[in-house]
């Protein structure tokens, strides 16, 4: 195992940040921790990168114990924290050589690992890190986390607040790093990014809701989901919430996702109910569940 946690718990005073969490990440795996702010994702990262000692439980990273062998872990992992934490007053190049030096290496030695990311920021190598755009800061931080050729890479919400185009590029970079044999643990609040991981852990309020491949998690969804659309979204949601057979209703893009309490369900019946409620342009069809549906069902 590249990463292995057993029964890890951590509290901050009265707040239980993570409670009895166990999971394993295989070597070379791209593993996602998926959950909203406050789920406990950052606490897990800080424990695994030896910045925080758990109250209970044990964990190993790259074969080393997080408490006894913390120094060995620090030299064999790369960590990109959620908050930009490079030196703002150093240039792009200075930051990179600083991190290389600290880890007893040089930029040249492991350049092949960062090359396709670094070339994108190389034109700005003399610019101070504090003056970079969000997307470029993120690329520099990734280079700095990789420069000592880590076995395991920890990325805490690398794409939060990043636009869809830059997010897509970032995930393409991760896939290339994975091919080079690096194990990656990445967290995100964006459920659509979950589908890009080999396996994911859905996490909320410090506890794991489920661990599996994205496909398997979606296939476990217990209900048939219907896309429902009408001329007025607000009235549609209200009418569905008042419907006696409602199981759940959530807005999903241009439609709402509706599930019914009953085993047998007639589309025509719901349609006539909505027509009576004064809605027009009613559209009902069977839809595919996605990770977000699964998360909401498990989080109930």
């Amino acid at each position: 195992m590249s990463i292995s946690l057993s029964n890890i718990s951590k509290s901050y005073k009265k707040v239980k940040a993570v409670q009895d969490i166990s999971f394993d990440v295989n070597p070379g795996e791209l593993f996602g921790l998926i959950g909203p702010d406050g789920a406990g994702k950052t606490t897990i990262f800080r424990i695994l990168t030896t910045l925080l000692i758990p109250d209970e439980g044990t964990a190993k990273v790259a074969g080393f114990d997080i408490v006894a062998d913390y120094k060995a872990i620090r030299s064999s992992v790369g960590y990109m924290p959620g908050r930009f934490s490079l030196y703002q007053d150093l240039t792009v190049e200075e930051n990179l050589s600083f991190f290389a030096t600290i880890f007893g290496t040089t930029i040249e030695e492991n350049y092949d690992l960062i090359e396709d990311i670094y070339v994108q920021i190389a034109p700005f190598k003399n610019r101070r890190a504090g003056k970079l755009s969000g997307g470029m800061k993120q690329k520099l931080a990734l280079c700095c986390a990789l420069i000592h050729k880590p076995k395991v890479l920890f990325l805490d919400e690398p794409t939060t607040g990043v636009d869809p185009v830059s997010r897509k590029e970032f995930w393409e970079m991760l896939k290339r790093l994975q091919k080079k044999g690096i194990t990656i643990l990445v967290s995100t609040p964006y459920m659509d990014e979950a589908a890009l991981c080999d396996r994911i852990a859905l996490i909320q309020n410090g506890a794991i809701l489920d661990i599996d491949t994205p496909k398997a998690i979606v296939s476990k969804f217990p209900k048939t989901i219907y896309n429902v659309g009408a001329n007025n979204m607000y009235k549609l949601i209200q009418s569905l919430q008042d419907y006696e057979h409602l199981y759940s209703v959530f807005p999903f893009g241009e439609f709402v996702h509706y599930t019914d309490q009953r085993e047998s369900f007639e589309i025509a019946e719901l349609k006539s109910y909505l027509e009576k409620a004064g809605l027009t342009d009613i559209h009902i069809e069977v839809a595919q569940a996605n990770i977000e549906d699964a998360f909401m069902e498990l989080a109930k």
Partner: peptide
């Protein structure tokens, strides 16, 4: 809604619709 959990995110949008 950045970083907000999916259920609350949808409640938030229901408030917007209202």
């Amino acid at each position: 809604t950045g970083g907000v959990d999916p259920i609350t995110r949808r409640h938030f949008w229901e408030m917007i619709y209202k």
